[in-house]
Write a protein that binds this DNA or RNA. Structure first.
Lengths: 224, 224
DNA sequence: ATTCTAATCAATTGATCTATTGATAAGTAT
DNA sequence: ATACTTATCAATAGATCAATTGATTAGAAT
């Protein structure tokens, strides 16, 4: 095998992974899968894609080595192949944010009050939560919470926020988190809590980033 | 703007970066650019692509925010937009290596003596080089060496290795490095040095990774 | 002015990608 | 057996991508 040929083939293999990341729908699916193991129909529902389309995208992700799957009865559950995939997604997001001007414009256009929403770094939250100074709020759907969440976090899915406000201590600051740095659930939660007069901020990053950083995690078995 | 629309648009932007990484030729160009600032015709020559084709790929990389360019006289020089791009490329490589079975097979097929070529970690090299125990050998072309290299590294481009062997101390171990973890220059160098009875290993990673790790670097002005 | 070089642009062809549609397979439930 | 659910497969049309070709622009040199 020639040296040039080797190189060429090797870059072609790396490009397969790049190709898997080259479609917005696949990136969205990856973000959902990064929360918890998911079946195809869950992913289809939450992404708004058809079943067949979702299935095909998932197979492309699988061939690129980004996700693995497991069959159980009728359902097929997909999960990330490893934590390094979260690292890759973060690197992609980071580069896009720092270098693609459109991303910043988009974020600013949607998050008009962005500057009021300075995020809390993970290390700071961990410290303050241990001292009981803050309420940690998980605004993702119950299934995602059940699959794993921050220690001591209270789960109130975003649609029920106002209805179940009594679960949040009136006198503590609330730190909300959700799926990731650009998931808007936590942004919305903070905005709504502030309208209700609460002291609220959001966590920098989401659950996958927290987990990837090696910080402590609780799952359904030990939840409150 | 609806929340779903925002999310959709945002993922589409991230996918633009993924798309830039979805082609082997572009990844190869990025690796060359990661070594040093490069003009379009240099890149065309070294990659074997036509001028027009190279130019078009470079523009795609530019639109994705991965490279920037600067015009000087007739020439246009391209450079990485930031060090985070090296981090992204490493994450891509890492995931591909760990999860795409074909990559491993490819590497094993080419590097038949791979197990004899255990790389030296950067930290170890830095330590041993400071104590004068090893000769650090840069086997990249002179232009790349001039744009930046490891402190005290001796530059012998691979084709001239045997001819200029006298520049390497016979009694010290040689540690060779090149463009990156899969650049075959360093592999070849080690293999050839060993055939000549020298004690040689290669550095883990290449110059971009060394630089990205924040380790000390020399450039042409202070070279030996 | 003319010529040359470096780079980009514009148009084209063939290949690949995306989403849809309808069919099929595998497992459950009645 | 029959019906239902979940997921995949197969075929298709339209969109996008990649590489080539030839023309064009911008700057340098004679």
């Amino acid at each position: 095998m020639s040296s040039r040929g080797f190189k060429h083939d090797l870059f072609a293999q790396f490009a397969r992974v790049g190709k898997a990341l080259s479609n917005g729908n696949r990136l969205e699916l990856l973000e959902y899968i990064a929360q918890a193991e998911r079946s195809v129909d869950e992913l289809a529902k939450v992404s708004g894609l058809t079943m067949a389309n979702t299935s095909q995208h998932l197979q492309q992700l699988r061939l690129a080595g980004l996700v693995s799957c497991r069959k159980e009865g009728l359902k097929v559950f997909y999960t990330l192949s490893g934590y390094d995939v979260i690292g890759l997604l973060d690197a992609l997001r980071g580069v896009a944010e720092r270098h693609v001007a459109d991303v910043e414009r988009l974020i600013n256009a949607y998050l008009t009050v962005k500057d009021n929403l300075e995020p809390v770094p993970a290390a700071e939250l961990l410290h303050r939560a241990r001292e009981g100074l803050v309420t940690v709020l998980d605004v993702r759907p119950v299934e995602e919470y059940a699959a794993g969440h921050l220690p001591g976090a209270i789960n109130i899915p975003l649609p029920e926020l106002e209805a179940r406000l009594d679960r949040l201590d009136l006198h503590k600051e609330v730190v909300a988190y959700c799926r990731g740095p650009h998931c808007i659930l936590a942004f919305d939660a903070v905005e709504r809590l502030r309208k209700l007069g609460r002291d609220a901020r959001r966590l920098e990053g989401g659950f996958p980033e927290w987990q990837h950083a090696g910080l402590p995690v609780e799952d359904a078995g030990e939840s409150h």
